[in-house]
Amino acid sequence: MARTASGRPLTPWLLIVPSLALALFIIGYPLYNIVFQSLHEVSRFGLIKDFCGLDNFRKVMADPVFMASLWRTLWWTLGVVGGTVLVSVPVALILHQDFYGRGVARTIVMLPWSVSLTMTAIVWRWAFNDEYGMVNVTLQRLGVISSPIHWLATSNWAFPVEILVGVLVSVPFTVTIFLGGLSSVPGDIYEAARMDGATAWQQFRKLTLPLLRPFINMAIVLNVIYVFNSFPIIWVMTQGGPSNSTHILVTYLYERGFRLGKPGEAAAISLVMLTMLFCFTLLYLRIQPKEGEGS
């Protein structure tokens, strides 16, 4: 087509350079730093000692808590991201409807996003307190339970609770992405479809979903990355306990690095996590059908 004078192969690169330079600048050194630390013995206070090859990796892999945390991280990510997408698609569709109070509803749905993760986790930790927490108080008042539930005392309750909190804080971000996506769908398509006698479900399957696809993909990939690395909820609510039963990799990493004073091992864990995420996104993007430009 009309790739005019400005269509030189250089143009896209010129457009990309500012963002590339900024990102490289900020990410480059820390990445190098992590790789370097993971290959060295590092003291509690962060001093680099001898080169130790893959010792840090070996030590970490040998720890049964690491393997348990790894599996739990997969469940955590699957639970939170899956739950989030399942909740967000219908919510976004509703918020895209024209109804009274839509502005208020949208603002409410986005509200959890206005509180930093750490604070959200603190509030929920407090709400789930055995004796003074409002969750138990409310449930008891309503007669749902007769004596307080010890929410965070065992992982049987604590972990699902943490996943639910994770879903709650991820919904606003995801719904917003979907709303942005839905707003790019021209309304006359639906009118045409309605005239053709398409049911609501057919409209959703045949029109909305395909148009939303790139946005859903983006939401999944980004959410997986954020949730996989998400630290405050679990750390604040249970610190990976009791008895390591709610550790995910990132809380385990934090404990190793900053509680038990082994920054080298923490760096190794970080690289393992990076590799896992990288493989995931490669795989995921490979499986997805190519999103054509301007389909």
Binding site: N129, D130, Y132, P148, H150, A153, T154, G241, P242, S243
Partner: peptide, 14 residues
């Protein structure tokens, strides 16, 4: 009850 949900502060509050 539920001792594993009680930090030092929590017991002090009790």
């Amino acid at each position: 009850p539920g001792v594993t949900n009680y930090s030092r502060e929590d017991v002090q509050n009790l």
